[in-house]
Design a protein around this nucleic acid. Structure first.
Lengths: 190, 190
DNA sequence: TTGTAATTTCAGTAATTACTGAAATAACTG
DNA sequence: CAGTTATTTCAGTAATTACTGAAATTACAA
């Protein structure tokens, strides 16, 4: 590996982290490298930087592309492929969320739904279905929230995050105002 | 494997999903099995249900305990350990979030902070630091939100989820009311 | 104590996953 | 077209991870 020390720490950390997800070490390292590079890199530069085989780079880039985590760029008068990550970290977050949902959440929801359609043949199955139904309900709630929130532009999303739990306080305030309005009107009528 | 068909589908699915996380197949299967079981199971029952070795069950249960995903129970006049998952799916979600934060997010934040403390020795390092700083900022924002929201009781959390993006609308309404109040007052003064 | 049941540990092996080098393919150039 | 460069594929191998059975440990009972 042939990198500035500070970049190397980052790349190595992402390699280790990769394994904690389903992603392998090399894929994590390549991603990290592209993320911090000032300009797009081609495959041979990655080979050079990380000290791994050309074919490994090819396969790992393909995986990163499957995850939509990497952008393919072309320089004028150069046939080689160059790769970067999006500049905007919020965009990266969105992509990550979307892909993980697609790979992990959606299949689980569909398995759950399928099982819940079936007729239980015993008490054990009946109980299992009840449990799965709870899980299904929770996951569906979370994904509905996600589908909703992901539409927001970045600065609104940021606002929502900053607000955090204070939202519920705000909600109470609103209820108070609304009910105040109602009681005022009903007073005016009565 | 010796399970009601409907439970088996669920267990097998969780086994496969396990691999997509860092968790292995067996751990995923055991968790799924415990999750849908009407009462706690002991190690031999798990061996029987999943058709795996006793030692594998022991190691996998230990891993699930390390994740706080499983509860140890004892029956009167029985020396054996019995295992369950918490009944409340929201509690399970909280545990999952907490553990993943601990294992994935916190170490990453600390690596980032450490690197950002250092003096860059080149333009490349300077640029890398700028990128890492963006990432650090985003992750910190997300964790602050999480630390805030996780304090909420379940029904408030549920409300917040149901609200979703509508929160920002609510926020605008509040701003309008507040500014209305202000302009009214300033009109009164002027 | 000694015996027995429950659980854990761990060395060895099986299974899976990651990686490489060589060959094939694709994309271009003169 | 032949020649060159870039990229991908893939069989074989290396490395890692998962799993087992046997032995060790722990916890209790007689």
């Amino acid at each position: 590996m042939n990198l500035p020390p500070l970049v190397q720490s980052f790349v190595l950390h992402f390699g280790e982290m990769g394994s904690r997800w389903g992603i392998n070490r090399t894929v994590g390292q390549i991603y990290a490298l592209l993320y911090v590079s000032p300009e797009p890199l081609n495959a041979d530069q990655i080979v050079e930087a990380l000290g791994i085989s050309r074919s490994n780079v090819s396969m790992s880039l393909r995986e990163l592309q499957a995850w939509n985590l990497v952008l393919l760029k072309h320089l004028p008068d150069d046939r080689r492929d160059f790769f970067t990550t999006p500049d905007d970290v919020w965009q990266i977050l969105r992509t990550l969320a979307e892909e993980r949902k697609k790979r992990e959440v959606d299949p689980t929801l569909s398995v759950l739904r399928e099982i819940l359609m079936q007729q239980p043949a015993s008490d054990a199955e009946r109980h299992a279905q009840a449990r799965m139904s709870e899980m299904h309900g929770l996951i569906e709630r979370l994904t509905t929230w996600y589908e909703d929130v992901k539409q927001l532009e970045t600065d609104r999303l940021a606002t929502l995050l900053t607000l955090g739990a204070k939202v519920t306080k705000l909600l109470e305030a609103k209820d108070k105002i609304v009910s105040l309005g109602r009681s005022k009107r009903s007073t005016e009528k009565g």
